[in-house]
């Protein structure tokens, strides 16, 4: 299958989404920096968004989600922005309290 000559499909988008998703997950799993974790979350959300857009696109499928895909993606974007604001505020607070943003040291409640 030639990627350059064949028309692309939803599956291709899904692969891109999967890459972003998994990279985001691994990012969340490996970054010790709280902001790195936050970036991982953004990547994850983005990967999900790609799927929504792909399934809602009428260029990729004859029978699509239609507008719903785009609308859900929009909500995800907006909520991601909200989440980023709060997460950032938490990170700043964490930094103020612990003088670090290393999530490995956020274990005050460890049992």
């Amino acid at each position: 299958m030639n990627l350059l000559t064949d028309p692309i499909t939803v599956s291709h988008y899904m692969v891109v989404g999967a890459v972003l998703f998994v990279v985001g997950l691994v990012c969340m799993g490996t970054k010790r920096n709280a902001l790195g974790v936050l970036m991982g979350i953004e990547l994850v959300l983005n990967g999900a968004n790609i799927n929504f857009i792909a399934f809602g696109s009428k260029y990729l499928r004859a029978e699509t989600l239609g507008l719903d895909g785009q609308l859900i993606a929009l909500f995800v974007i907006v909520l991601a922005a909200a989440e980023a604001a709060v997460a950032l505020a938490i990170a700043l607070n964490f930094y103020n309290n612990h003088s670090t943003i290393d999530v490995d040291r956020a274990d005050d409640l460890k049992g």
């Binding site: 997950l25 969340m28 799993g29 490996t30 970054k31 010790r32 974790v37 991982g40 999530v103 490995d104 956020a106 274990d107 005050d108 409640l109 460890k110 049992g111």
Partner: peptide, 17 residues
């Protein structure tokens, strides 16, 4: 079981995955 709940954020992510 406490060993599972170590307060390590990244481990939790791995668990989820």
């Amino acid at each position: 079981l406490k060993n599972v709940q170590r307060g390590n954020l990244r481990e939790y992510v791995l668990f989820i995955m």
